[in-house]
Computed example of a mutant assay.
Amino acid sequence: MSQQQYPPQQPGWGDPQQPFGQPPFGVPKRKKAGTGKVIGLGCLGLAGLFVLIALIGAVAGGGSSSNGAKGPGIKVGGAADGSTSKGYQTVDASEGSDHKAEKRTSEKVVIFRVWGTAPAGALGPLNITYGSDSDNRDGAFENGKFEATLPLDDDAVYFSVTAQLQGSGDIHCSVTVGGKTKKAHAAGDYNICMAQLSSGLLGGWH
């Protein structure tokens, strides 16, 4: 007696149906979030780095342009042979600096000078006295000239220089205070050359 074969069990209501002879479909794997974004951002960052390097190079190249402003004492737009191109000027930083320095110095000191011909006589060489109302000094006439300086004393009433000949000669003398100069002249015998500047009541020297 043969056994009765029962039909295979039918899937129940709600059970997933599978095609006969095929394995069940697996659940699709999700891609890791952000993988594409990271790669994209990496490429974008590399491109940005190249752009930044290019900008730095452009700025550095523009800063070294020969048409930019130059400091004093540098020829701007000059040719290779040292000539200056049209429309540009050569600026000398030292131009006039010596004159300005001398002027500033002369405003802080008093300068006394005697020059000319003054042979020594029976009483000796040319007699020179210089200074202020409170400070008198003797000077020596050598090689046809004499020059001395003293600090400027704002309380002084006057500054002067005198030179007396010893029988013959021809001399000039001067005193300079604050850019103001007074000169005098003497010739022959025992004449005296005297130059003096006095302080004014309202300031200044005359």
Rank of each mutant, 00 (worst) to 15 (best):
residue 157 V to N: 10
residue 194 M to C: 11
residue 93 A to H: 11
residue 32 K to T: 00
residue 193 C to W: 07
residue 205 W to P: 02
residue 146 F to I: 07
residue 111 I to K: 06
residue 19 P to L: 11
residue 143 N to R: 09
residue 39 I to M: 01
residue 55 L to W: 05
residue 123 L to W: 03
residue 48 G to Q: 08
residue 45 G to S: 14
residue 125 P to H: 15
residue 163 A to E: 13
residue 45 G to E: 10
residue 15 D to Q: 15
residue 47 A to N: 04
residue 191 N to Y: 08
residue 104 R to G: 00
residue 53 I to Y: 11
residue 6 Y to R: 06
residue 80 A to T: 10
residue 36 G to K: 01
residue 123 L to G: 06
residue 32 K to D: 03
residue 202 L to Q: 10
residue 196 Q to P: 02
residue 24 P to C: 04
residue 180 K to L: 02
residue 99 H to E: 09
residue 99 H to R: 09
residue 182 K to A: 12
residue 32 K to G: 02
residue 50 F to Y: 08
residue 71 G to M: 07
residue 87 G to K: 12
residue 6 Y to N: 07
residue 9 Q to I: 10
residue 143 N to G: 05
residue 160 S to D: 06
residue 113 R to S: 05
residue 172 H to P: 03
residue 105 T to Q: 14
residue 181 T to G: 09
residue 156 A to E: 00
residue 55 L to P: 04
residue 195 A to K: 08
residue 125 P to V: 14
residue 167 G to M: 08
residue 25 F to C: 05
residue 76 V to L: 12
residue 20 F to C: 12
residue 142 E to L: 04
residue 6 Y to P: 12
residue 12 G to R: 08
residue 68 G to A: 14
residue 60 A to C: 06
residue 13 W to S: 01
residue 90 T to I: 06
residue 45 G to C: 14
residue 156 A to G: 07
residue 185 H to W: 14
residue 23 P to E: 09
residue 174 S to M: 09
residue 99 H to P: 05
residue 66 S to Y: 14
residue 75 K to I: 07
residue 64 S to C: 07
residue 47 A to D: 04
residue 85 S to W: 12
residue 114 V to C: 05
residue 161 V to S: 06
residue 38 V to P: 00
residue 114 V to S: 12
residue 52 L to K: 01
residue 185 H to L: 11
residue 7 P to K: 15
residue 79 A to V: 06
residue 168 S to K: 13
residue 40 G to R: 11
residue 46 L to H: 00
residue 22 Q to I: 08
residue 36 G to E: 08
residue 57 G to F: 03
residue 55 L to C: 06
residue 66 S to T: 12
residue 80 A to N: 06
residue 202 L to H: 08
residue 195 A to Q: 00
residue 198 S to Q: 00
residue 155 D to T: 03
residue 116 G to A: 00
residue 143 N to V: 13
residue 159 F to H: 08
residue 179 G to P: 08
residue 160 S to E: 07
residue 196 Q to C: 07
residue 76 V to A: 15
residue 162 T to N: 15
residue 123 L to I: 05
residue 166 Q to N: 15
residue 186 A to D: 13
residue 26 G to H: 10
residue 87 G to M: 13
residue 129 T to R: 15
residue 182 K to D: 12
residue 89 Q to F: 12
residue 126 L to N: 04
residue 176 T to S: 03
residue 205 W to L: 01
